[in-house]
Simulated assay, not measured.
Amino acid sequence: MSREIVTHGTGPSPIRDARVLDVITRMNASRRLPPREAFDGPVGKDPQAFADYGFSIHPDQGDLIYLLCRGLGAKRVVDFATSVGMSAIYFAAAIRDNGGGLVIGSEFVPAKVEVARRNLEDAGLADYADIRVGDARETLRNLGDPIDFALIDGWPVPEGPSLARQVIEIVAPQLRVGGYVMNDNAEPDFLDFIRDPANGFISITLPIKRGTELALKIA
């Protein structure tokens, strides 16, 4: 049965499930960001202080995640950080449409986990996601079987390596050869890791959002 193609990014979405698209459209319509000055000072580094805000991927990033996961036949993926569930919905839609599997999400703020789970339920995708509450450096340390795709976002830390760098070092050994990593924030030390040939990746920077790094594990 044919249906109208829905556009919510810069082009038509590859997703054809009206229920999923309705939730994505609602979430995009309700997007809001805190004022820039909210990030100043020590509170700006505390994710709990931003529990009322969903920092979500751009629709074009979501469509790319869905398309790549479908092409890979992805069954097991990592979603960090899950926030209110936007990226998890794209992942879970692809996993379901591939015949089943699991999205392993990680989110530090419990209130956001509750919202993410409700959004996944509304989209009819709750059975395909395990959203873990806590520090991703612990919740993603043991993923079980190899994974096919990982989204590495993150949150500013006061000092030392970025959270994205710390998490990719944990996740990379658990990613299968031929799997993808997408990074949202272009943290310099994450890029240093993913672009170092010794770590087994090749990557490109895509002109999506502020610059989206997409890496393929080749070794």
Rank of each mutant, 00 (worst) to 15 (best):
G71V: 03
I57P: 11
A49S: 12
L67N: 12
I57R: 04
G44M: 09
A38R: 15
Y53Q: 04
R31P: 01
G71S: 11
P35Q: 07
F39A: 00
F39K: 03
P47L: 02
G73M: 01
G44P: 11
A29F: 08
S30L: 14
F55W: 11
Q61W: 03
A49F: 02
D63E: 08
A74I: 04
G54L: 09
C69L: 11
Q48F: 15
P47N: 08
A74D: 09
F55T: 13
Y66G: 05
P35M: 00
C69N: 14
H58V: 10
K75R: 15
S56V: 12
G73D: 01
A49I: 01
D60G: 11
G54T: 06
D40F: 13
A29S: 15
I57K: 05
P59Y: 07
I57M: 11
P35G: 03
F50L: 02
A51W: 07
M27L: 14
A51T: 07
A29M: 09
Q61G: 13
L64Y: 02
E37D: 10
D46Q: 07
A38E: 12
P59A: 06
Q48L: 15
P42M: 00
L72H: 06
P59C: 05
G44H: 09
K75F: 06
D52L: 13
L33N: 14
F39H: 01
D52H: 11
R70N: 06
Q48M: 15
S30C: 08
Q61K: 05
A29E: 13
G71K: 12
K45N: 07
L33S: 14
L33K: 13
G44Q: 05
A29Y: 05
Q48Y: 15
G41T: 02
A51N: 02
A38V: 06
G71Q: 14
K45W: 13
F50S: 02
A49Y: 07
D60N: 15
G62N: 00
L33G: 03
G71M: 08
N28A: 07
L72P: 11
V43Q: 10
K75W: 08
D52G: 15
F55D: 08
I65S: 04
R70T: 03
G62E: 02
K45D: 05
M27K: 09
K75S: 13
A51M: 09
L72I: 09
